[in-house]
Design a binder for these strands. Structure first.
Lengths: 190, 190
DNA sequence: TAAAAATCTTGAACTACTTCAAGAAATTAA
DNA sequence: TTAATTTCTTGAAGTAGTTCAAGATTTTTA
């Protein structure tokens, strides 16, 4: 039932059968409907979400009232606001399901208890965070060095199937240009 | 001698006296001269650096031949290319000392050995990476939502003393605008 | 301390994007 | 299956920045 999470963990650290028993006894799968939020700006983010199936995004609303997506998460990704989660401070972000999504949601007390029972998971979450930070650095590099059109084609090359899963305006904001400009890029009018 | 690192670790996890002994026996302080590189694009990054004193930066050279700073690191920061370090793949980045800098450099074999001897440090490095990722998310938010002038003033407010430590053109590229535009912002000509 | 190197400034011309507005198309809900 | 909602497209006008070039200033090195 939680196979995708166990597989993901075991890419990075080994799990004993007893560890798996512990996890099976305390995890649960939850469903989030498309467009529902699990975090709103101003709330303290108390939960980490592992996406089993579906797609979520982290976004902000800018001063013009437009949504800008900072991060997408799909199968086998963790999504949370780490700063809010770690420091118990209000979040700057919204986190929302883009598709009907199944997640394993782990709130802070449960996470603390799991990490005490299975210390090997500290290493797992270390690696997850280090990879996420590395990816964020690459993302900033691409934002700095590529034109809007290059970012669009580069993203499509890296994620050929993903583009169809989200509305174009969400992807446009993730790549830091306007939805209208995305339209023109796709039409070859630029 | 390694007090600043021990203090930093103990902000997040407790250390036994025996842990400190282990660390003292295997760490060493090294000095990096201003402008010297510890990583060049294309090399595999095999080392993590804890900055005891001074300032370093991670940067790229874009297609026009201009340097663009992705990250600064100052006292009590870790700096490395995590993706290259984790996956043993060539780095996209340069890492260079901006000032004469003292670091504790830990290469991968040593890091592995330290983490086996002091498993509590897995949690420490997990928290370090989670905070770094959280900060990167905030950085992307600011890049997305603020004008060049707002980014400059915001950065100065958050880091009032830092601005004097680096050449303006490095800070301009970190904030994602040109050195010339920075000049105009500072002169109030915009 | 002088020379060399690095950094900063300025204005003019340019451009990669944004904004706005309104209609068309596609998707979702009743 | 129709209505409602969401998403996408298009062109025209505007603008926040870049680029270039050259000189001025500051910092570093010898």
């Amino acid at each position: 039932m939680y196979k995708s999470l166990f597989d993901h963990i075991q890419k990075f650290v080994p799990l004993e059968p007893s560890d798996i028993n512990i996890l099976e006894s305390c995890l649960e799968l939850s469903k989030i409907k498309r467009k529902d939020h699990v975090l709103q700006e101003g709330q303290v983010c108390n939960t980490m979400y592992f996406i089993v199936k579906g797609c979520m995004r982290q976004y902000i609303i800018n001063s013009k009232g437009t949504e800008q997506t900072l991060q997408f998460g799909i199968e086998n990704w963790w999504i949370t606001d780490y700063l809010s989660f770690l420091n118990h401070i209000p979040s700057h972000f919204y986190i929302q399901a883009v598709e009907n999504t199944e997640v394993i949601a782990i709130d802070k007390p449960l996470m603390d208890s799991i990490l005490v029972q299975i210390p090997a998971l500290e290493k797992y979450f270390k690696i997850v965070a280090q990879k996420a930070f590395g990816a964020a650095q690459m993302r900033i590099k691409f934002l700095f060095t590529m034109s809007a059109e290059e970012r669009y084609h580069h993203f499509n090359n890296l994620n050929p199937n993903f583009t169809q899963r989200v509305p174009q305006y969400m992807l446009a904001s993730y790549l830091d240009f306007s939805a209208e400009f995305m339209s023109k890029i796709r039409a070859g009018k630029v």
